[in-house]
Computed example of a mutant assay.
Amino acid sequence: MHDAVLLNETVAAVLGVKSLPKAARLQAGGIYVDATFGRGGHSRLLLSHLADDAKLTVFDKDPTAIAVAHELAATDSRVQVIHDSFATLTGSLNALGIAKVDGLMADLGISSPQIDDGTRGFSFMRDGVVDMRMDTTRGQSVGQWLEQVDDETLANVLYEFGEERHSRRIARAIKQMDSYESTLELAEVIKVAHPNWQRGKHPATQSFQAMRIFINNELGDVDSFLAQSIEMLKTGGQLAVISFHSLEDRRIKQFLQRHSKGQYPEDENLPMPPKRPRYFSKPRRIGPSKTEIADNPRARSAWLRAATRSDVIVSTN
């Protein structure tokens, strides 16, 4: 099972309301996108507040998630399903005849079902092949990548995407392994190589995160999705994105700050700084309640950042 994090808060944000009514449905019209369908928690609640003529397009890389999405689409004609990364947002929506949308929402990172399924290779607590691909129908697995990567490149990946301070030591240990067929064996090698464990945190946590983010190009996809949101959102449309670690959250924060202030690096060769667009309103940051964290510990590291698409022109003079 997967409990959707910040469920009510995210759906309210993408609909542009402060909170969802408890005893009524909004019946909102328009076109919306769930960029990370997962098991459909956010999508199902959103659909319950949409009018009969509204549309919802859902994206996901994971074939299992897509199978669930198709089941939902079979019972609700408002739903369209795209098996691909949200990095293809503009092209995929344009192919469906969609030029603009009223709301975009995304729940980044990995889902509980992916972690709990040891065969996917995401978990260092359950044995499985060292895969870690979100989309198992394409691309290279982490195990295949480890077979050919050199120590230095691996160390750089562990440091950049996992913020692992002992990346070089761990990389050398990983490259001394005979094979990369077992996640538990990989986790044990990292554990032995790690010189300084943080209490309450498995020593392989950051290394597994780094390899997963790298092999799925997660940060690159986030950057591409955010950039495309400017063009795809209607004026007055809503962007709502949930992140679970600092690498993602920092990108979202900086993107919204930059495009809500209309401030870009100056071109020193220009005699007068040009007027620039302010694409988003002042962003909002929302965290989980104590009750949600108690009910779902996974929510403790989640942050929702939301903003409204605007077309304000500001002068940098």
Rank of each mutant, 00 (worst) to 15 (best):
A74T: 08
V79P: 01
L46G: 14
H42Q: 12
G41F: 12
A54P: 05
H70T: 00
T64D: 15
S77D: 04
A65P: 08
Q80S: 15
A65E: 13
H70V: 00
L50Y: 09
F59T: 07
Q80W: 02
A35G: 09
R78F: 00
A69G: 08
L46R: 07
V58T: 05
L47V: 12
H70C: 00
A54C: 07
L56K: 03
D76T: 13
H70K: 11
K55C: 09
I31F: 10
R44C: 13
D76Q: 04
Q80R: 13
F37K: 14
R44Q: 15
V68G: 02
D52F: 03
D52W: 09
S43Q: 10
H70Q: 11
V33N: 11
H42R: 13
R39E: 08
A51I: 03
E71I: 08
F37E: 01
I66C: 03
I31G: 03
L46I: 10
V33C: 11
A35F: 14
L72V: 12
L46C: 10
G40C: 12
D34E: 05
V58P: 05
S43I: 13
K55D: 05
D53V: 04
V33A: 01
G41K: 06
A74V: 07
A73K: 15
I31Y: 12
V79T: 00
K61P: 05
F37W: 06
A67K: 15
D62V: 06
Q80P: 11
S48L: 13
K55I: 11
T64S: 12
R78S: 10
L72T: 15
I31C: 15
K55P: 05
D76G: 09
A65W: 01
S48F: 07
A35Y: 08
G41H: 13
E71L: 10
T36K: 00
S43W: 14
A54Q: 11
D62E: 03
L46Y: 05
T75R: 15
L50A: 04
R39W: 14
A65K: 02
G41T: 15
S77M: 06
F59K: 03
Q80I: 01
Q80K: 15
F59L: 01
L47R: 00
K61L: 14
D34T: 04
L56Q: 08
A67W: 04
L45Q: 03
S48D: 10
S43K: 02
T57V: 15
A73Y: 05
D60M: 03
I31R: 12
G40F: 14
F59H: 00
L47G: 07
A73C: 13
H42G: 01
D52K: 15
A54W: 08
V81R: 10
E71H: 05
F37I: 14
L56W: 01
D60Q: 10
T75D: 05
G41N: 11
L56F: 03
A35V: 12
A54M: 02
A67S: 14
V33R: 09
V68K: 11
A69Q: 06
A69P: 13
Y32A: 06
D52G: 06
K55W: 01
Q80G: 14
L45P: 07
S43R: 01
